[in-house]
Design a protein around this nucleic acid. Structure first.
Lengths: 196, 196
DNA sequence: TGTACATCAGTGAACGCGCGTTCACTGATGTAC
DNA sequence: TGTACATCAGTGAACGCGCGTTCACTGATGTAC
């Protein structure tokens, strides 16, 4: 194994470990010392590969966004009637969030005090992914304000998933949450199809 | 001013200052040193009135819950048709959240690592307030699962408000957010009124 | 092929900061006589 | 009313911890001759 290979391997290992830590305990669970310990390197070695810990965090967050994007793309579905497609997308979001709870929650956490410090590339990717996630929804929306409406529908789904999975308020069991989300989403779809 | 009065005044001042700090910058903005400085007392004095900073935080959070409760009670409205009442409640939540953004956000922040450390009294109050907030909604819901449904509808509203006011993703201007929330809530109400 | 040298990924110990919290002390307040 | 004493709210300086980050050094890897 050449020096260059070893370098690349350590860098990759650091990202993998950080990813797993965040996947298990959210952003707060990422500590430089733990990371170095698990990677079997010294603290200083981290800084040979990343300018600071935040850079590493954003590398992981970028992967999470990709994962979300992929999961939602698979659920866009075709053919079925609009309400069913909206429902499928909503449930896909719920399943993904439930399966990757801390990573998903991390997407909405603020580790940095100000949004201005968030790298532009990450910000752009985030906007792109959410636009992509909302796109199939937008295609199903009536009226001129398709995109804003799709965003709100997604936000509504996110809210139900978010409070439902938050162990702070009592966590709703997943099957019940599926049922409740379905009821609301189907009602919403019905309502959207009926002119007010 | 007697010693006892001075004591009570300092205690009250500490809560007021903490409240304002949290109201301005969220939970993260509360630091023992700042607090002491603004109150014009020493660091140690804080600990004569509260066992630790968390106790002070929970005192403030309790006030925030009271405030939310009061704001929502005023919006329950009567007489109007169900959809309008659901809408009124939703908009009231939006207005309150927008007006008290950091305090409102603090209600959903986790300062303590585990929910188990949250005082039972606060937990009970929180459950009570949210139940109270959801009650008028529940009264308007069809079917047997009124309460679960009301919780989901509230969660949907919360999601729209939450993502709409989050400056992380682009903040939606308040008038636009009002309009979008109204559209979705009215559609949802229509859909709930129409049997699936 | 072997040897002297340069490079540089990685080390480990320390730095420095912000933070909540503690504690020996003080001095004003209130009490007993 | 005045004096000696006890109480205890508040002081301020320090403690101790966890954290991200830095830096003088090392030793294995790769190169030049």
């Amino acid at each position: 194994m050449s020096t260059t290979d070893r370098q690349a391997a350590l860098r990759a290992a650091l990202i993998d470990i950080a990813e797993r830590r965040i996947a298990e305990g959210g952003l707060a669970a990422l500590k430089a010392r733990d990371l170095a310990k698990e990677a079997g390197c010294s603290l200083g070695a981290i800084y040979l590969h990343f300018p600071d810990l935040d850079a590493l965090v954003f590398a992981v967050q970028a992967r999470t966004l990709d994962l979300l994007d992929a999961a939602m793309s698979g659920a866009a579905g075709e053919g079925a009637d609009p309400a069913q497609r909206i429902l499928a997308l909503s449930l896909a979001y719920l399943e993904w969030a439930a399966a990757h709870r801390p990573r998903w929650a991390a997407l909405f956490e603020h580790r940095l005090p100000s949004e201005a410090e968030v790298p532009a590339a990450y910000r752009a990717q985030r906007a792109r992914v959410f636009r992509h996630v909302e796109a199939p929804l937008a295609a199903l929306m009536p009226g001129a304000e398709r995109e804003a409406l799709a965003r709100s529908v997604f936000a509504a789904v996110h809210g139900i998933v978010s409070l439902g999975l938050d162990e702070k308020l009592e966590t709703t069991p997943l099957p019940a949450l599926r049922a409740q989300l379905s009821t609301v989403v189907l009602a919403l779809a019905r309502g959207l199809a009926t002119p007010g």
